[in-house]
Amino acid sequence: MTNFSDELYYKRSLVDMTIQPMEMEHAKQICEWQYESPYDLYHWPPWDIMQQDEIEFGDPVLRRMQYASVLNRGQELIGFAQFFPIVGVTRLGLGLHPALCGRGIGTDFTRLITREAIHRAPKNSIDLEVLTWNVRAIRTYERAGFIVDDTYVRQTPEGPAEFHCMVYHSSP
Rank of each mutant, 00 (worst) to 15 (best):
H26A: 04
T2W: 01
E25V: 10
G104L: 06
D59P: 08
G104M: 06
Y67N: 01
E32K: 15
T114H: 06
I49S: 07
Q75N: 13
V15R: 13
Q34T: 13
A137T: 06
R91G: 01
A121D: 15
R73W: 13
H43F: 08
F83G: 04
P45L: 13
P38Y: 06
H97N: 14
Q34I: 13
D150V: 04
T18D: 02
Q66H: 10
N134I: 04
G145Q: 03
A161Q: 09
Q29V: 11
I147Q: 11
A161G: 06
Q51N: 10
I126F: 01
I86Q: 14
T2Y: 10
G104R: 09
S170K: 13
R12Y: 07
V89F: 08
Q82G: 15
G79E: 04
R91W: 04
S171N: 10
L77P: 02
N3K: 08
G106I: 09
R111A: 02
M1W: 03
T110L: 15
A81D: 04
P157K: 09
D149P: 02
T90P: 08
M17C: 04
V153S: 05
T132E: 03
Q75K: 14
H169T: 12
M1K: 09
K123C: 10
C101S: 09
Y35F: 15
Y39K: 08
V135Y: 08
G74D: 08
L8S: 14
T90L: 09
I30W: 03
V70N: 00
A99N: 10
W47T: 11
P45A: 15
I105G: 13
V15Y: 10
T107G: 05
A68S: 15
E25S: 14
S37L: 13
R103W: 04
M50E: 05
E129T: 07
L94C: 03
V167S: 03
F83W: 06
I19E: 04
A117R: 01
M24A: 12
Y67D: 05
L94G: 05
S69G: 09
N124E: 07
G79M: 06
E23M: 12
R63D: 02
M24S: 10
I49K: 13
N72Q: 00
K28E: 12
L94K: 08
E56A: 09
M17R: 09
S69K: 11
S171F: 15
W133F: 15
L100A: 00
W47A: 14
S170R: 13
S170N: 14
F83S: 04
C165M: 12
D16S: 11
Y42G: 05
S170C: 12
M65N: 14
R120F: 07
A99W: 05
H119C: 09
D6V: 10
L41S: 07
R136F: 07
L8H: 14
D53C: 11
Q155D: 06
Q34L: 09
E25F: 05
T114S: 06
A161I: 01
I138H: 01
K28V: 14
A137G: 03
Y9Q: 07
C165A: 12
L14I: 11
N3S: 12
P21E: 02
N134P: 08
L77A: 00
L41E: 08
L92P: 00
I147K: 11
A68W: 02
L128E: 05
